[in-house]
Structure formats: C-alpha cells, structure tokens
Simulated assay, not measured.
Amino acid sequence: MGTQLLFTDIRVAAELLVNQLRGYQVAERERKKLKRTLNDISSLIPVTILMLLPVSAIGHAAILAAIKRYIPFLIPSPYSSE
C-alpha cells in the first residue's frame, strides 16, 4: 500500500512541478506536498540500497528497526504510521 501511495504522490508532485514551471502559482499546501514528495524520493534511495544488501530476513528487520529508531527521517512518509 505504501508503494502505491508513493507513486500517487510522485504523479501529483510531477503535475504540480509542471504547473509551476509553466508559470502557475502553486499554493503553500501544494508547495509543502511537493517538498515532502521530493524528500520521500531522496530518502527512498538509501533505504532501498540497504534493503538490497544480501542479509537474512532477520537482518533486514534489524536494519529497518535501527533506521526507524535512530534516523526516522529516512523512512519515506507513505511507509510511516504518521
């Protein structure tokens, strides 16, 4: 479900970015959504690399738990409980 939400956010952010490049004014709420989506994309890359490491399922769970505890901003917002 989180991946679907992320792709939906990316699609909406791309539309907002195109509108902004065409000269349309974007609202503050839309600007925040665009910024949040760009942060999600940039944080998804390191997490994906860590999850691609050849580690057991328990190792992946431990890595994800450590990321969630010590650097929670690396978890993209569609995958978090907030």
Rank of each mutant, 00 (worst) to 15 (best):
I58S: 12
L52D: 06
R11Y: 12
N19H: 10
S77M: 03
F73Y: 12
L16F: 09
Q4S: 11
L50W: 10
A62P: 03
A13E: 08
A57Q: 12
A27C: 00
A14I: 09
H60E: 15
G59M: 12
E15R: 12
K32Y: 08
S81F: 05
A66F: 03
Q4Y: 10
L21Y: 09
F7G: 02
A66D: 04
T48M: 08
Q25M: 05
L17V: 06
I41V: 15
L44R: 03
I75C: 04
I67N: 02
F7S: 11
Q20N: 13
L17R: 12
N19K: 15
L38R: 04
A62E: 14
I45G: 01
V55W: 02
L38H: 01
R29W: 06
A61W: 05
N19Y: 05
V18G: 01
A61E: 14
I41A: 11
T48Q: 08
L16W: 05
P46F: 00
A27T: 14
L5G: 08
L50Y: 06
E28W: 07
V12R: 14
P46M: 01
S80L: 08
L16Y: 10
V26T: 12
S77L: 05
I10W: 04
L74M: 15
Q4P: 00
S80N: 12
R22V: 06
I10S: 00
G23I: 04
A13T: 14
L17F: 10
A65S: 13
H60W: 03
H60C: 10
L74C: 04
T37A: 11
I45T: 10
I63K: 01
Y70P: 01
A57I: 13
E82S: 12
R22D: 07
E15T: 11
T37L: 10
R29A: 14
T48K: 07
A61D: 10
D40R: 06
H60N: 14
E15Q: 14
V12C: 03
L52P: 02
G23D: 00
Y24H: 14
G59T: 10
I67Q: 08
I10Y: 03
L50F: 12
D40T: 06
T48E: 09
Y70I: 08
S80M: 07
P54R: 09
S81P: 03
I71Y: 01
R36F: 01
N39Q: 13
A13V: 10
P54N: 13
F73V: 08
K35P: 05
T3L: 15
S56Y: 02
L21Q: 14
I75H: 00
L34S: 09
K33N: 08
M51F: 07
A14W: 09
T8M: 10
R36E: 15
S80P: 00
M51R: 08
Y24N: 15
P72H: 03
V55S: 05
I71P: 01
A13S: 15
I41W: 02
A66E: 05
L5E: 14
E82V: 10
V47W: 05
T48R: 07
R29P: 01
S81N: 11
G2I: 07
P78L: 04
L74Q: 00
L52E: 11
M51W: 01
L50K: 08
V18R: 14
T48W: 09
V55D: 00
L53K: 06
L38I: 13
M51A: 09
M51I: 02
L34W: 06
I41R: 03
T8G: 08
D40A: 04
